[in-house]
Amino acid sequence: MTENSIVQSPGRKPNLIGVIVKWRVITHQGLMRSQNEDAHWVGHSIEVKTETESASRYIFAVADGLGGHRGGAIASRTALKSVKAEFYKWHGGAADGMIGQAMQKANQKVFCVAQSDPELFRKMQTTLTVVALDQDSLTVGHIGDCRLYRLRDDCIKILTRDHTMSNDLLQMHLISAEQASTHPGRHQLTRSIGSELFMNADIIREKVRPEDTYLLCSDGLWSELTEEEILNAMQQNDVSSACEKLVRVALSAGAPDNITAIAFHIETVGNCTAPAFSWRTFFRMS
């Protein structure tokens, strides 16, 4: 048995343990940036457990880099290298540990690169949000102001919390939600990857359900859209249409910043009989 195909034994069909997901990624440098400092990665693994059972796992990650010169792009891509390395060593379970390790290593590497040449990489840092799917569980590691939205039963919810000055003031009840939406510190990060040697990430866990749709995006997307516009786009018939509409509306609004959007839809949760064709037909490439 290989990752690309399933060989069926006579009278027996392999069972897939986990989730079947459809997804789409779109990234754009925006209308006022000379380069794209956002970075993204989607990983999918099939691990053979027994002759008739395989486990399916996914990981989705977005990093939004910032810093002088080319530092932002280096920061975001350096962070994702750590995510990839930890995902490839992961054999399921304890997703929070895998994500926490990936984010700590990402932080140390970005910090060390910034210290290696302070003049070139001054203030180099990045946001990082990582989403892992294993069986029926979704685990999120989050630092910065990328966001994870969930659409369930036609209701939209933001699962992450922005680590920004305005949102911190809002959490302390020092400003109102209306004031936070226009506050000058709306995009001023209070937590990030690479700003200090040690960092504290949020870890979020929840159970997924069939027909859930999620949106993982950088602030270049969500800051240009209302919650109603995001809801309307995510209610499209498929994730490709949803992702395209989100980016199209953001660009129409001006989109001065880099944009990255990953939309993914939960098709099936739990055990299911796997058909005799490529696993790769279960998901879409960007």
Rank of each mutant, 00 (worst) to 15 (best):
M1Y: 13
N4P: 04
N15A: 12
I17V: 13
V21K: 01
V21E: 07
W23P: 03
M32A: 15
M32Y: 05
S34A: 15
E37L: 07
E37D: 13
A39E: 09
A39K: 11
E47L: 12
E47C: 13
T52I: 11
A55T: 12
S56H: 15
A61I: 01
A63V: 00
D64W: 03
G65V: 00
H69P: 03
H69W: 10
S76T: 12
A79T: 07
V83E: 08
K89C: 09
K89P: 01
H91E: 15
G93T: 06
M98G: 06
M98C: 15
I99S: 02
A106P: 05
N107S: 08
Q108K: 12
K109N: 13
V110M: 06
F111I: 08
F121N: 07
R122Y: 11
K123N: 14
Q125P: 01
L128S: 09
V130M: 06
L133W: 05
D134T: 09
Q135W: 02
L138V: 08
T139Y: 11
H142R: 00
H142L: 01
D145Y: 04
R147A: 02
Y149K: 01
R150I: 11
L151C: 06
R152D: 05
D153F: 10
C155I: 13
T160L: 02
D162K: 00
M165E: 14
S166K: 06
N167I: 07
Q171W: 09
M172T: 07
L174Q: 14
S176Y: 08
S176N: 03
A177T: 08
E178L: 07
E178G: 06
Q179P: 07
H183Y: 10
G185Y: 11
R186C: 05
R191D: 04
S192I: 03
S192Y: 00
I193F: 02
L197W: 10
A201P: 09
D202W: 00
D202H: 00
I203G: 00
I204T: 02
E206L: 13
V208S: 08
R209K: 14
Y214A: 09
L216F: 11
G220P: 03
W222T: 03
N232M: 05
A233Q: 05
A233T: 04
N237K: 15
N237M: 06
K245N: 14
K245A: 15
A250M: 08
L251N: 11
P256Q: 07
N258V: 11
A261F: 10
I262F: 04
I262R: 04
A263S: 11
A263V: 15
F264K: 01
H265F: 08
I266A: 06
V269M: 02
T273F: 09
T273G: 12
F282C: 10
F282E: 09
F283H: 12
M285R: 15
S286W: 05
